[in-house]
């Protein structure tokens, strides 16, 4: 198992390198000039050239890549063209904001999904199963950004009970999870973020539980006279590795795919940063954000894999 773990860790290195190449290459598909947004509409070609030189954007692309990679390895992702601040600081700050709501959403989704999944798996075909499954199908089918817009209109505009946008009354610097006047800003983004993983996790829970409950050893346990609660508890323990793995993936998806929700709620996380970087063609920021998000995803996958190996030694992967 330790060998597997070591190999698994080593295996992420080439992946990581591949990721940096993709991150770097993508940006150069882009139309338009990266420094354009800094300039007034009637800037001269000379002004543009001068500014490009200043940001090193006039060097050959492979040279830019090597330089960028070298810096990236030391934690220096360059300077944001828009804000003139280090990209690392920008992404780091935003990552915290994204990870917090993504984690809460994933945990919330997990708790609800476990509840619904257990009810569903123990009442296959019953009305509770159907209701739970309907919620799950809605969750995986609804365009969440559309749902987010509806949430804003209902709760912020019509009912006026929750804020429509932003993170905290004075910005994310003074945001606090422990004061309702601040934490309420996170409610709608979390609700909008929870639905999809809720659907997927409910589906996984229900399927794995139903699977385990139909296996022979459960019958044996029942025959031994174990109470139904104890049997279900046993089944859950067996299904947990699978559910945990899915939880990890969903968390990764939420962190990496937060762009729509964060854009709608102006939640200053990485997705929001990404959208700003795309809008303003801030190349260092765009590269840095994508890189960090992809690496975070790789990291989460690695951790999930290792945990899975740990809790479920039956898994032996090559």
């Amino acid at each position: 198992m330790w060998l597997y773990a070591a190999r698994r860790v080593l295996f992420t290195i080439p992946i990581g390198l591949g990721v940096t190449i993709i991150c770097f290459a993508l940006i150069y598909l882009a139309p338009g000039d990266p420094v354009q947004s800094l300039l007034p509409p009637d800037a001269t070609a000379n002004d543009i050239a001068q500014l490009k030189h200043y940001y090193g954007l006039d060097k050959p692309i492979p040279v830019q890549y090597i330089l960028w990679l070298g810096h990236a390895l030391t934690g220096d992702l360059g300077i944001s063209i828009q804000t003139n601040r280090p990209v690392t600081d920008e992404v780091w700050r935003a990552l915290g904001n994204t990870v917090s709501i993504a984690t809460i959403s994933a945990v919330l989704a997990m708790i609800i999904a476990l509840g619904l999944g257990i009810v569903a798996a123990t009442n296959i075909g019953g009305w509770a199963d159907r209701l739970a499954t309907a919620i799950a199908v809605f969750g995986v089918s609804v365009p969440t950004f559309w749902l987010a817009v509806v949430l804003v209109i209902v709760f912020a505009v019509q009912l006026g009970v929750l804020p429509a946008t932003g993170m905290g009354s004075k910005g994310s610097n003074t945001f606090s999870w422990f004061e309702w006047s601040e934490a309420r800003y996170a409610v709608l983004p979390i609700v909008a973020m929870t639905l999809t993983p809720l659907g997927i996790l409910m589906r996984t829970t229900r399927a794995s539980l139903a699977d385990i409950l139909s296996q022979d050893f459960i019958q044996t346990l029942r025959a031994k006279g174990l109470s139904e609660t104890a049997v279900i508890r046993h089944a859950i323990a067996n299904a947990l590795p699978q559910i945990l793995a899915m939880f990890g993936l969903q968390l990764g998806y939420l962190i990496g795919g937060s762009i729509l929700i964060e854009t709608i709620f102006t939640w200053p996380g990485t997705g929001f940063l990404l959208n700003k970087a795309i809008l303003t063609r801030d190349i260092p920021l765009l590269q840095g954000t994508i890189l960090v998000l992809a690496m975070a995803f790789v990291g989460i996958n690695l951790i999930v894999d290792l945990i899975q190996t740990l809790v479920d030694p039956r898994i032996k992967r090559i």
């Binding site: 990581g16 591949g18 990721v19 993709i22 990764g252 990496g256 729509l260 998000l293 690496m295 995803f297």
Partner: peptide, 9 residues
């Protein structure tokens, strides 16, 4: 390598 990116990203 492509799997290292969440699909939306």
């Amino acid at each position: 390598v492509f799997f290292a990116f969440p699909s939306v990203l």
